[in-house]
Structure formats: C-alpha cells, structure tokens
Design a protein around this nucleic acid. Structure first.
Lengths: 256, 256
DNA sequence: TCTCCAAAACTGATATGTCAGATTTTGTTG
DNA sequence: CAACAAAATCTGACATATCAGTTTTGGAGA
C-alpha cells in the first residue's frame, strides 16, 4: 500500500508510519488511547511531530480526537462502512471501465496471472480449518494489490490514490471478524480479470460492481452486531483484546 | 461548500478557512508564497496553528511545501485536472444512480426546481457580453450546490464528502479562464434532473457522465496552454497578477 | 454500599525560541 | 560585465513550557 507522497517532515512522517502500521496490523485496536505526550516519549521526540502525525491520521479517518479530552483509534460505524462501499464501488467500477477501454495486452496478461494466483491462495485458505491471522493478512494484502494493479493500469494517479484511501480504511476491520465468512466462488478473481479484459467498458463496470459488493451485506450485518454489543457497555474503559504486540502495552505502562 | 467536520483546533481551523477562501477566491493565485511566520503575524497567532492549517491544505492539494524552502499555492497540472475529472465522473455517476434509485418525489421536485433556476441564471449570463467575475462565481457556486444536492439526496455522507473534495479543487480554476467558453445547451441542467428522476439508474449514470465531461476537453486544452506558457519562464519569481484582494499584498509587504 | 463533588491527573492547543537547511544577496575576482 | 563564493536572510521543523478544558479519582456524607 505504497502511499508515497510525504507532505510531512521527517519525524512526523516516521511517527505517522509507525502509528499507521500499528493500527492496520491490529496492534492498536479501535478505542486505544493515543496520548500526544506518551507517544512522544515512546518515540523519543517532542509532541509537535506527534500532533502532526495524529492530525493526518484523523483526516484519513483512522483516529478521532476531541480537544483536550483525548485521541483514540477510531471504531468505524456501520454507516461509514456502508458509505465506504458506495464510494469504492464508484471508484473501482470506473477503473474497470478505463481498464477495459485502454489496457494493453501485456497489462491484461499480467492481471490474469495475478487473478489466478490470488484464486489459488484463497482456495488454499478455505481448505484450512483455522487459518492463521498472518496467512489471512497476507492474502488480503495481495487482494488489495490486485485491485490497485487494475487502477494503476489506467494511468490515472488520482484514481489510484482515491482507491487506496477508500480501501485502506477497511483493510483492518475486514478480516478481523470471527471466522464464519462465506467462501468466494470458484475462479472469482480470474473471471473478473477476464471480464475486464473483454474490452467492453460497460461489462467491466458491471462485473466490478458485483465483485465489490459481494460480501458487503454480510459484513455490514456483522458490524451492526458489533456496534450493538459495544452500545451496551457505553465506553467501558479501553477495549482490551488479546494483542501480542508490544506497541499498545508499552503505551499503557508509560508513567507520563 | 460546507465542510463541517473540524478535525482541527480553533485557531488552526480559522487559519485554514481564511487561507482556503483566499485561494479559492483567487486572492492567493498559484505560486503565492505562504510563509509560516508571516501568516502567523498577519493572523495574530503563533506558527503552530498556521503549520497545522498548511499541512491540511497540502494534504488536500491546495498548496505544496518543501522542507525549509517554502510553501506556496499549488498550480495544478493538466494531469491532475484530468485525473480529477475521472474521479468526479466516477463519484457523481454513482450519486446519479442512487438518486434515480431511491430519491423521494419531494427530492426529485426540489432538484427540478434547482435545475430550472440554474438554467435561467446561465442563460442570463450568456446574454451578457462581459459578465463580471462575481456574477460568474455566484452562478458557479450554485452549480456546485446543485450537484451536492444530488449527492445529499442519496443519504450517503461519505459520497458527499468525496464529491465535495473533488469538486472544490476545480472551483477556482474552472472559471478563471479568459472568456471564450462554449455556452451550455438549452435546458442543460433541467434535462439532467429529468433523467435523474426517471427512476432508471443506468440512464441516470450515463446522463451524469455526459454532463460532467461536457467541457472537459476544452478546459484541459486551456490548461495545457497555460502550462506551456509557464514552462517558458521557469519559476521566474512569484507570479504577479492583478489581484485586488488585500490578502496577498498584505503578505508581501510584511517585514518578517 | 452508594452518591456526589472537589482535587488531582491528564489531555490537546498554543506561544516562544532555537536550529539547520535552502535561498537570495552581495562582494570579489577574473 | 560575468562567474563564483561567502555571507546574510528566509524557511520549515522541532523542543520546551504553559494554559485551559476534560476526565479520573478519592473521600465525605447519606
């Protein structure tokens, strides 16, 4: 997920990246408090670049901050997830149109290969009874790459950035759900790649829409349940989860 | 263009808004230097909230900053404008689909009224030989509102925000071009509103795509010329233009 | 044990000052 | 007058300190 453009100074940039991977890897689950001072101490820098990093993370929707009350990792609402799907559907179907319209034979071939590889990995994952979190993350990361490859082939950098933003937001929450998820149909991505390579923009558009919204309702239902569960205990302390990472614990046990 | 979510503190928020309207109104034309200190002095605040405001403006593509070298209002490239059109087409056609699918009779009626009013204003503008910049800006602002009204009717806040961002970027440059612009067809917006009210998502999608891309090629050509003209004199000092605003001049004549 | 409230602890926002890098100006030399 | 280097100036990045809200806590009283 190479977001390249820095737009921030050295220390701020480093803090931003650390926090970002911390959040996306699940080391900092939703609700985790992110104190300017504690982070500054943890990173060995002042609060200024930390504030810059957190401001950017807030603008990107990873974090929510209330003035003089605290900053914490954001728990997305069902409404936001749903809205995100709508935006993603718009952007990715547009990418599909452009791909069908102007992709070179080489690009089509490359996409087909990626799709095939991806389908193999998903099949392998479905065979396992209890796939490890790492294995799921690995495949999911390649899935994102697959979609980004379609966007990149359009040659429109703005479209790539927009898709990156709307995809990344879901990256974490998507596969953090329990286990009961509907397996993908046989050759799910291969068929999509074929549709995109057909040269028919409208068909490509429609195929991508179906692809993007495939598990949407399942996931929305899942999050609606989570939301209700969280509603019962209104903000009862930081949401402790069994997190192995050293990040969150270090933060907790920091004196100041 | 009501972007509501603050995400920034009081002073930083105020600085952000001042700079933003300064840029969008053309008072701070592309290339204008934006010094942290000078702005801080001008606003009567410290450099911290100014830096926060500029960071946000940079993330939104309004300014560009090089560490320890300077910050200035950004001149968008043809590639960026073109990419912006692609993203806008994706988002607005999606809004059109949803509108056609789920807008209430009241919302449809309201949209038709807005479209009619808008067409009248454009017609009035076309009659004038030399319409004032203010008059153009006024109509353009209502045009943006018309499109946002479609998005709002979908009930998807994320879609509204995404469209706001991709529209606002063009707001200024769009009508800053000389004068020779192709007049819109008769009942241009009214017909669009009718298509969106037809209840056919696919027709609405297609109609909106045509609408969004109508003057695209003209504008891209215009900016390509501007870009070439600017290329000749490589960064020869700040691009002085005849700007009436007090903003830029105040900044220039500030001692420190 | 429960309720309520004040003090303590914590939080983000901001001001001031300093630093090193980038740019511009200036002085010198050919 | 051109070329070049040094110095003066300007820039954004960052550290430290302080402030005013917010939340938590620890009793006091019921």
């Amino acid at each position: 997920m190479g977001i390249s453009i820095t737009g921030m100074s050295d220390l701020g940039q480093q803090a931003y990246e650390k926090l970002r991977v911390g959040i996306l890897d699940g080391e900092l689950p939703p609700g985790s408090p992110l104190s300017h001072r504690k982070l500054a101490q943890l990173f060995g820098i002042s609060t200024i670049p930390v504030a810059a990093a957190l401001q950017r993370l807030e603008a990107e929707g990873f974090v929510e901050s209330r003035a003089r009350a605290g900053t914490r990792v954001k728990m997305p609402t069902v409404g936001e997830i749903s809205g995100n799907y709508i935006v993603r559907e718009a952007l990715e179907s547009q990418a599909a149109r452009l791909f069908a319209q102007s992709a070179s034979p080489l690009q089509k071939q490359r996409l087909l290969r990626l799709a095939n590889d991806l389908d193999k990995r998903y099949r392998r994952l479905d065979k396992q009874v209890t796939p490890s979190r790492e294995a799921q993350a690995e495949v999911e990361k390649r899935h994102v790459e697959f979609h980004l490859e379609i966007a990149r082939a359009t040659g429109c950098q703005e479209l790539v950035s927009a898709i990156e933003k709307s995809r990344v937001l879901l990256f974490n929450w998507l596969f953090s759900r329990s286990g009961e998820y509907v397996p993908l149909p046989q050759g799910w991505h291969t068929r999509l790649a074929e549709d995109l390579s057909s040269g028919q923009p409208l068909s490509a558009d429609e195929a991508m829409r179906l692809h993007v919204t495939f598990r949407r309702d399942d996931i929305l239902r899942h999050f609606a349940e989570l939301e209700q569960a969280a509603e019962g205990k209104i903000e009862r302390g930081p949401q402790h989860r069994k997190v192995s990472g050293t990040f969150a614990t270090k933060l907790q046990n920091l004196p100041r």
